[in-house]
Design a protein around this nucleic acid. Structure first.
Length: 260
DNA sequence: ATGGTCGCGCTGCGA
């Protein structure tokens, strides 16, 4: 089965792009971030027509996450289940197709040292605690999303220029690395050691044209899912199309449990 | 170039 993650930067503005990609790439599970709409505004019927079940955790104007799956979505959970998470819609998980999957939109953090940066670090800590609890179920787990962290220097086009900036600061890299220390695997990096590839290019300053990007969108897979990991790719093509999101999809294949 | 460009929703904020 194929699982993809994509920060679409408004599902309404991006609907033709997302429908076209979902049709062509045909992921079994599509994890979306920054849908930027309340649940009632999500174009549910258009995705149901493509054969997806839809679960959303929306919010007016900002944030918002969703899970689309060709299999039924069970045990849907919205938020990280700790105090303080109800304000911003940044996490949704469900059990589908024999896996637990989650779509996460980690706060951007705006500027190192700001209140928003502190909120980002706190969110990463809450995510870590929740991810740890998920591991204890010994289910196959895939937590995909926009982590807003370039894990290592190799994940930035100009690591020295980005050093100590938001998205690359050591404190947020440490927060992200704690997820790996629990036993989660960065699926794309596991399949492509030493390779540079971006998942996000700023709209500004001609970043796409100059290929100035960062790899900040990740699929973290539990050991049980890592044992079944197949191909993992970043699909650059949607970033170059008309009315593109500033992020592009990342996908992985997870073999059926009985084939592992 | 301390800039640049999007989306939301109608003014400036967030990314």
């Amino acid at each position: 089965m194929k699982i993809a993650t994509w920060n679409v930067n408004s599902i309404k503005a991006r609907l033709p792009n997302v429908l076209a990609w979902a049709k062509a790439a045909a992921p079994d599970v599509l994890l979306l971030q920054e849908i930027k709409t309340v649940d009632d505004g999500f174009p549910r019927l258009e995705f149901e027509d493509l054969g997806y079940n839809v679960a959303t955790y929306g919010q007016k104007t900002y944030n918002g996450v969703a899970i689309l799956s060709k299999r039924p979505l069970d045990d849907v959970q919205r938020g990280l289940g700790e105090k303080g998470e109800d304000v911003e819609a940044r996490y949704i998980e469900a059990f589908t197709a024999g896996l637990r999957v989650a779509s996460v939109y980690v706060p951007n953090g705006q500027e190192v040292g700001s209140a928003k940066f502190a909120y980002k670090l706190d969110f990463l800590a809450r995510l870590m605690r929740h991810a740890k609890a998920l591991l204890e179920t010994e289910e196959a787990v895939v937590i995909g999303g926009d982590y807003n962290v370039a894990p290592e220097d190799i994940d930035a086009y100009d690591p020295d220029g980005w050093r100590n900036q938001v998205l690359c600061h050591p404190d947020e890299r440490a927060g992200y690395r704690r997820l790996l220390n629990l036993g989660y695997v960065d699926a794309w990096r596991a399949r492509h050691p030493g390779v540079q590839r971006w998942s996000w290019w700023d709209y500004r300053a001609g970043a796409w044209a100059k290929d100035h990007g960062l790899r900040i969108d990740h699929l973290l897979v539990s050991p049980q899912a890592a044992d079944r990991l197949g191909s993992v790719e970043i699909d650059r093509k949607p970033r170059g199309e008309d009315k593109a999101s500033d992020h592009t999809p990342v996908w992985c294949e997870i073999a059926d449990a009985n084939q592992a």
